[in-house]
Design a protein around this nucleic acid. Sequence first.
DNA 1: AAACATTTTGCAACTTTGTTGCATTGATTT
DNA 2: AAATCAATGCAACAAAGTTGCAAAATGTTT
Lengths: 139, 139
Amino acid sequence: MQARIMDILKKNQLSVTESRKKILELFQDNPGALAHHDIELKTGEKFDRVTIYRTLQTFVEKGILHTIPSADNSIRYALCKDECTEGHHHDNHVHFICDKCETTYCLEAITVPEVKLPKGFVPNQIEVVVNGKCRNCVK
Amino acid sequence: MQARIMDILKKNQLSVTESRKKILELFQDNPGALAHHDIELKTGEKFDRVTIYRTLQTFVEKGILHTIPSADNSIRYALCKDECTEGHHHDNHVHFICDKCETTYCLEAITVPEVKLPKGFVPNQIEVVVNGKCRNCVK
DNA sequence: AAACATTTTGCAACTTTGTTGCATTGATTT
DNA sequence: AAATCAATGCAACAAAGTTGCAAAATGTTT
């Protein structure tokens, strides 16, 4: 596990630091996506707020994490699959946010459907975010 | 035009005030969606920031506006179609955000496609947000 | 049309979130 | 192990969002 974290960092030419290791570890251990605030909580007082901002930012730039849009002004981050490289994200899967437990899932198996656009509109990226009850919260 | 604004407010049992009229007018005159910040700019110094927050909030609650998720931490708001009522939004259309001019379109004609979810996940709402170049920015 | 009751507004004060510059610390290379 | 380069933490700030409350505007009743 630790080995893979080192690999990811080295593959992306990032120096291996405490904060980067810890934050990556959080994402690997967590099933869903995490917002900045979640990370602050889960790391305790260990790292400066600024460090977390900058770490998340470089991870997104390097293609290690991708962002998930939301309607509540709190961007969530999740691990990219291996194909993502610097500047080129390929996370064309559907995201699911549970209304009850707030967990955010990357449904890797579900790819985003085709969307026909009106004339003149050229798509670049398509985001599909589904809200509802997740498998743990349905009864 | 003014008449329709009054109608919308009265239909929703909201008292007709300067700020509500003005903000609704903004949305009617604007082709795309607006973020809180846009509204602050377009209304000048006319209304308090707090008033704008509260107005947007009640409009969303009443089903007059709906929110559009984004990956840049700035929720956009757009007019709902008539079918939306308090607590029940039916804006199942696709949203398009232009990478260049930042305009956000509600593509009313394009309904969100079916999305198959894994077992145990029960969908409530599906948001489809497309990024790319809009018809004015493609050359 | 005036007086009452009820909302809504604006202000102040505050919390949270995000950004920038810079000295210090820590990681990598030779 | 020393030199080089990058990352961190601190401070100070800017922007975004929230809450309580008195004053003002709206709607309602007489």
